[in-house]
Design a protein around this nucleic acid. Structure first.
Length: 596
RNA sequence: GGCCCCGUAGUUCAGCUGAAUAGAACGUCGGAUUCCGGUUCCGAAAGUCGUGGGUUUGAAUCCCGCCGGGGUCACCA
């Protein structure tokens, strides 16, 4: 890449002119701001002291030396301490020619023999359907997986289903009490929603019991513990852990409903996994680890039988690892699954896509793992993301203001349909094709809107704004893509252009140059985004590219170009842009339509 | 209260391994247009980068204090 070459050439010149060694790391090369002339800029301030000359003098000397040594550098200019290089048209034009038909441009393929990076995401509870928060999780998890893979990492996507615990018992108990044998088949309700319904049901009755107890003079805290439903649920959990046949079979039945429902939603979202873990299979391993920790003296047992880890010396609190009745908690099972995963995959890195309300949990997890003597504890990385809020306020599951994932997708598809109908330009498409298109647009809008925001930040999701066909949105990029494809089709069809033939070197104007420069940056963008696990970087890059293309297209009469060499060149740019948009969108997990 | 995260145009967000006059989008206002597609393009107005210090040739970016918002400190997961 020419930017690296310039950087190296500057470092060489620094050595030659001023005897400054190993300057390469201090040579910051950046794209020249558009109000100045040039393509790449070097800031010379860091070297003026050692060079004993004014910034302008240093810049001029460096510029001359680099221009001399690199054929691709056509010219340079100096403004204050900024040295701007102009790269020759021939370089840009040859570059565009080279990448114009490369389907994998920007993508680096993984070596399957590398130690994998294992990424866990989704991790649903089986007692309620997926909601907007899960959507952010799933989209991030999938996209980061694609991103790492596009940067040459061997990625394994895993899902850890929280299929056991007191919360599951609550749904089961409520179903037994109030369900009258209702099933997804009998009720027509999607499995995960049905089970979720009984979880809510439990909460309703439980609250009533607590209130009753409190009315009769019991303290709130005690009432919460003593409410008959809660006591019953605790008993059920114990029975479950003891392997009670009846409980287990009910548990299996209700879980199977939930899984069927989840699968449907995953499919709609376009996410998937290489392996699914179930906590019911792994939590015992966690208990063994706790025993090991006790033997090692890293953990301790309280008088009531509960097991704890003292983290006060690390500035944290004491953490419970086993309840007094011997049943395991969240941390216990996470210890177990981490070990299992490490053993199975020999992972190079273990990434957990989990909300930032669990930052503390992962801090503790890493410390406990390392105290248990696992040197791979520092391979654990918590990819923490912020909450999703809505224009009308916060989501609270307790207040019933959650946005259900299925409902939201339905809603988005409906909106996409309305907007397409308004335009009325898809009359030639079959109903099936239209349905597919609405789905692609709806999901594109949703995914893009969520992924373009930095994961760590609390974000505001505005459904109406997301599906706008204008501005920094998924549909805008999808539209741009479809339009480019249409141009390329016309050029290769009616005009009979052969994209595989070599383009002659042509003069490159500013708009063309801007687009080619963006294309030129793809690799470095992808590797930077992968290093910081940031699909947002990819999203914003892709938008810039689409916008630059539109601006270029606006005042470049591609299909009316008289010079066949130039027309070929321009269409090659179109093709390269469309391929790159497609690749970048695919990292985001977003499909692009060939026509819309 | 302890610890963690966040605070950038009216709004939603970029920029955060320090560098030129802090960028987009939406909204507002004003223009343009016979490629294929008014779902496009160009321009304008709009910012004490929460606040006060510090480091530096240079700070939205790094460090410290304060203010504001959120999270977390469960025998829930």
């Amino acid at each position: 890449m020419i930017d690296n070459k310039i950087q190296q050439a500057v470092a060489d010149a620094l050595k030659k002119l001023y005897n400054i060694d190993n300057a390469i790391d201090n040579v910051v090369i950046q794209k020249t701001k558009k109000e100045f002339s040039g393509d790449y800029t070097i800031v010379v301030f860091p070297f003026v002291k050692q060079a004993h000359k004014s910034p302008e003098a240093v810049a001029n000397e460096l510029g001359a030396a680099v221009k001399e040594s690199l054929d691709e550098v056509a010219d340079f200019n100096v403004i204050k301490g900024f040295l701007n290089f102009t790269v020759a048209d021939s370089y840009w034009s040859a570059f565009a020619d080279k990448i114009s038909c490369d389907n994998n441009y920007g993508i680096k393929h993984a070596d399957p023999s590398d130690a994998p990076v294992v990424i866990e995401y989704s991790s649903p509870n089986t007692n309620k359907p997926l909601h907007l928060g899960h959507i952010r999780n799933n989209l991030l998890g999938w996209s980061v997986s694609q991103l790492l893979a596009a940067n040459g990492r061997n990625v394994k996507k895993v899902n850890l289903v929280n299929d056991r615990g007191i919360h599951i018992c609550k749904s089961m108990l409520a179903w037994l009490r109030y369900g009258n044998g209702e099933t997804p088949e009998s009720s027509g309700i999607k499995g995960d929603h049905l089970v979720g319904k009984y979880y809510v049901e439990f909460d309703k009755h439980y609250k009533a019991e607590v209130k009753q107890l409190m009315d009769s003079g019991v303290e709130e805290e005690q009432a919460k513990k003593e409410a008959p439903l809660m006591v019953e649920a605790q008993k059920m959990l114990k029975k479950w852990e003891d392997g009670d046949k009846e409980i287990r079979s009910l548990w299996e039945k209700m879980n199977s409903w939930v899984y069927a429902g989840f699968d449907e939603t995953y499919k709609r979202m376009g996410v998937g996994f290489d392996k699914i873990y179930y906590e019911s299979n792994t939590y015992l391993l966690g208990k063994e680890l706790v025993q090991k920790g006790l033997d090692m003296g890293v953990l301790y047992r309280k008088d009531d039988g509960s097991v704890w880890c003292d983290l006060t010396d690390a500035g944290l609190d004491q953490k419970l690892l086993l309840r007094k009745d011997g049943t395991s908690v969240y941390m216990t099972q996470d210890l177990g699954t981490a070990l299992l995963r490490q053993q199975e995959f020999g992972a190079d890195q273990l990434i957990y896509v989990v909300g930032n309300e669990q930052d503390y949990h992962f801090q503790v997890l890493k410390i406990v793992l390392s105290r248990l003597g696992f040197d791979w504890a520092d391979k654990v990385y918590h990819l923490s993301y912020g909450m999703v809020e809505l224009p009308n306020g916060k989501m609270k599951s307790r207040e019933g203001t959650v946005v259900d994932a299925d409902d939201l997708i339905d809603e988005m598809e409906k909106t996409a349909e309305e907007m397409c109908r308004e335009r009325g330009k898809n009359d030639d498409m079959t109903p099936e094709q239209l349905k597919e298109l609405y789905h692609i647009l709806a999901l594109g809008a949703l995914k893009y809107f969520i992924l373009k925001v930095d994961p760590t930040k609390t974000m505001l999701f505005n459904p109406a704004e997301s599906i706008d066909f204008n501005g920094n949105t998924g549909p805008f990029i999808q539209y741009t893509y479809a339009r480019i494809r249409s141009i390329v089709r016309k050029a290769t069809g009616e005009k009979g252009l052969d994209l595989n033939s070599n383009a002659k070197s042509v003069a490159v104007n500013d708009k063309e140059r801007e687009v080619i420069k963006l294309l030129h940056d793809v690799r470095s963008t992808v590797s930077q985004a992968a290093a910081s696990f940031s699909p947002a970087m990819i999203a914003n890059y892709t938008y810039d590219l689409a916008k630059a293309f539109n601006s270029f297209y606006q005042d470049t009469p591609i299909l009316r170009e008289n010079d066949p060499d130039r027309m070929l060149f321009l269409v090659k740019i179109c093709n390269a842009v469309s391929l790159t948009i497609k690749n970048m969108m695919s990292i985001l997990g977003i499909e692009v339509p060939e026509r819309m």
